[in-house]
Nucleic acid binder design. Sequence first.
DNA 1: CGTATTCTTGACTTATATCAATGTCGGTGG
DNA 2: CCACCGACATTGATATAAGTCAAGAATACG
Lengths: 230, 230
Amino acid sequence: MSIDPDLLRGTPLFASLAASARQTIAAAASLRRLAAGERAFTQGEPAGEIFLLLAGGLKLTRSGWGREPVILRIVHPGEVFELDHGPHRIRHDATANALRDSTLAVWPLAVWQRLLHELPGLPFGLIQALGLELAETQGRFLEIASLDVPRRLAHAVLRLIDRAGRLEEEGTRINLPLSRQDLAAMTGTTLHNVSRILTRWERHGLIIGGRRTLLVRDIPALMRLATAEA
Amino acid sequence: MSIDPDLLRGTPLFASLAASARQTIAAAASLRRLAAGERAFTQGEPAGEIFLLLAGGLKLTRSGWGREPVILRIVHPGEVFELDHGPHRIRHDATANALRDSTLAVWPLAVWQRLLHELPGLPFGLIQALGLELAETQGRFLEIASLDVPRRLAHAVLRLIDRAGRLEEEGTRINLPLSRQDLAAMTGTTLHNVSRILTRWERHGLIIGGRRTLLVRDIPALMRLATAEA
DNA sequence: CGTATTCTTGACTTATATCAATGTCGGTGG
DNA sequence: CCACCGACATTGATATAAGTCAAGAATACG
């Protein structure tokens, strides 16, 4: 049990709380480590915990009727997930897979509920966090509903660069090991299509591809591509 | 100002509150009427109100880079909308269009914030409401990312039947005037495609189409269609 | 050094969008 | 009340994006 309270300061959910409240919350958390490839939970399992990613990276995938599972969200350090627990949501509706070695803070649901009622500011942080997640999901829905594959792939790559970009000499690298298949699962297409599009972009000098890696050399060009009218 | 407190009992957001709290909330609301076709607000406008639909029906649309605007959500009576206001969300990110004559309860944002702080149960209702909306949006994202057009159209129709269905002799009718274009905007396709699919279903006896109306005769068959593997 | 995973590429098929025309319903005003 | 007009819907022909099938090449890993 117990983690460093300062780790909570970075995330919007806890940022506006008093230091003492953060201390209480931190004291109630336990630390969990995942090796790359391990899962924090699996779709369908009973859900009984709230998570904060401290380091590393995860993908949240959901499988349904369709072919391959879909990636609902990439979780970056400082982000919180699986937090919309109502009377519904007894089971996890997604699987959380570690993309790289990761560290999580975990609160049992019962403890979380207690904190929510005891710390006056916490519900408002939660409301804000949920609102942000909703807005993001709606944005991605709009993309997939109205843009063709290259454009939504461009959006996905730009989002990754924005949140997990690491500057290098030749450009900005997505600092997460995502396969072509993963990119396809994020954009609702196939790895073949992704591969073709990326090689085209590479020929045009926009990016440099690699095995589970991607270096973006010309971000403005990608942004133009993502939003171009036709 | 002021509406009947009993009107609030139907929605999850307010259901778990004490009667006195509902009375306070109702007293702070004002009533607004919209004729079919009118809009409650427009995308880009400054956002300063929270809405509850009492009667009628709305569509929330968002336009972006892509071709036609996309329908993010159909709002049914008893549902609340535009409630994720954080420091972000200064402007409406969608347009609310009345599909039929509608009645709304409206709270100015400032009043709403005050209520949220004064009525202890309210934030938890809000959390629950946001969680539900998030889950629904994620579900629709999964659909559009992994299913072909006929299947996601089937899902959309079934959802409408579930929430706005009215029983008739020959089947269940979607009790909202939705054009083919609207159905297309909900499923991320074109009205042409929707039209073709619906006439096919009509030939098979699943539905009976019409001008801005749809009667479903065989719901189980539609459900099979929606979830079929291939 | 071999094996498994990931990625690329080509040929082909199919779903879906686009273009274009026509048809039908329902309301409005003459 | 009827005729017309505008909104909505159907349908066909065609184009194209994207999925599928099928090898093969590159890279990482044990």
